[in-house]
Amino acid sequence: MRRPILRSALALSIAALTIGGCGSPDRDYTIPPQPLPSGEKALSGKTATIGELDYTAIGLRTRLGEVIGSHGSWIPHGQYVRVRLLMVNHGRERHDFDPGRQLLVTADGRTYGPNTDATQISRAASGTQTIASQELCALDLWFDIPKNATVRALRVFGDASSSKLGDQLKGANVAGARNPVDIPLK
Rank of each mutant, 00 (worst) to 15 (best):
Q168L: 08
S162K: 01
G158N: 04
D28R: 09
L165C: 01
E66M: 13
A48V: 14
Y29K: 03
H77A: 15
G72W: 04
A15T: 10
V88H: 08
Y29L: 10
I183P: 12
F143L: 11
V88N: 02
K46M: 08
S44M: 10
H90F: 11
L141R: 06
Y80R: 05
G45K: 00
R7M: 14
N148F: 00
V83C: 13
A125G: 01
D167K: 03
T56G: 08
T130D: 00
R152D: 07
R7T: 13
L154Q: 10
A172P: 01
G72C: 06
L12A: 15
L60A: 10
T111H: 07
N148S: 12
R2T: 04
G113R: 14
S44G: 15
G158M: 05
A15C: 12
S162V: 05
E40G: 00
V67N: 05
F143M: 09
I14Q: 03
L136E: 10
T62L: 04
L104T: 03
T106N: 11
R123S: 14
I31T: 08
G166L: 13
I145L: 09
G171W: 05
V67S: 07
G69D: 07
P146I: 05
Q34A: 15
Q34F: 06
M1A: 08
A153Y: 06
D182C: 09
A57M: 09
G100V: 05
A125R: 10
P114D: 03
V156L: 06
S162Y: 01
R92A: 15
R123L: 14
A107W: 04
K170I: 01
T130K: 06
I5A: 15
R152P: 02
G91S: 08
N148A: 14
E93P: 02
A175T: 08
W74H: 13
G39D: 08
R84L: 13
A16R: 00
P33K: 05
L64C: 03
M87I: 15
L104H: 01
G59T: 09
H77N: 15
T106L: 11
C137N: 12
D108T: 14
A118R: 01
G176A: 06
A124C: 03
A138R: 15
A11I: 11
P37Y: 03
Q129I: 14
A138P: 02
T62A: 02
T128D: 06
N179A: 03
A124T: 12
T47I: 08
W142L: 04
E52W: 06
A57F: 04
P146Q: 07
T111Q: 15
I19L: 15
T116I: 11
K46D: 14
A16P: 00
V181I: 05
P114W: 04
R82F: 11
L43Y: 04
T30C: 00
G166R: 11
Q129N: 01
